[in-house]
């Protein structure tokens, strides 16, 4: 008895026609070897399907997206949004994206416009832009604080001012003129000779 061979794979993938599928199932009922092989294929397929559910880290996708030229479509779509306008969605355009990638795209905010529009809600777009805005604000605030702090520290030392020796004699005269006193000089002060350097 000949075994199913490649038709077994088609059976597991659901690609056989109705009659061929009946004949293959009849063979499996009688052939223990093919039945074991079909079971193994189903388990393998199930495991592969489970593997497709693993998503990459969101940050990785953002970083990869940001690395590209903003004028060119990123690896997950056209940042300008024109692709969607032309083709409806990159999923529809390529037709080869995995479900995981499709889920990732649905999470990405609306620089692109999926045909349905439901995935481009403003809230989703805000979540997409928020981190970059926060980075900008934080950066500007840091620069401002550093600038103010540096200026304040640099201004701590007073300007270089010349040494001043008050003109006591002249001050005594000015005071007397203002006060209307007759005694316009203070001999004790005036007799104090300047101390040499």
């Amino acid at each position: 008895m000949s075994h199913l061979g490649e038709r077994l794979t088609a059976l597991v993938d659901g690609e056989l026609g109705h009659d061929e599928r009946d004949r293959a199932l009849a063979h499996l009922a009688a052939c223990e070897q093919c039945r074991a092989e079909a079971e193994a294929l189903r388990r393998l397929k199930s495991q592969l399907r489970a593997l497709r559910g693993a998503d990459p880290a969101p940050g990785l996708l953002h970083r990869l997206d940001a690395m590209g030229d903003p004028t060119r479509p990123g690896p997950f779509g056209d940042p300008s949004g024109t692709t969607s306008a032309r083709t409806g969605s990159s999923v529809a355009r390529t037709g080869s994206s995995s479900p995981a990638v499709r889920r990732r795209r649905t999470r990405r905010p609306g620089r692109r416009a999926p045909a349905g529009g439901a995935l481009r809600a403003p809230a989703v777009a805000a979540r997409r832009d928020a981190p970059r805005g926060r980075y900008l604000i934080a950066g500007a605030a840091t620069l401002a604080v550093l600038g103010v702090g540096a200026s304040f520290a640099a201004g701590a030392q007073p300007e270089r001012l010349p040494p001043v020796t008050p003109a006591l004699e002249q001050f005594a005269v000015d005071h007397a003129l203002t006060a209307g006193d007759v005694s316009i000089a203070d001999p004790t002060v005036l007799r104090d000779p300047p101390v040499g350097p």
């Binding site: 001012l161 040494p163 001043v164 020796t165 000015d174 203002t178 006060a179 006193d181």
Partner: peptide, 25 residues
């Protein structure tokens, strides 16, 4: 700048100028 103060009895002059005081005097 010469500031003249008084309370009617006492006369006080305050002279203010920019600079560092040369303390040797």
């Amino acid at each position: 700048v010469h500031l003249s103060y008084s309370d009617g009895l006492s006369m006080v002059s305050v002279f203010v100028q920019r600079g560092r005081l040369d303390e040797r005097r």
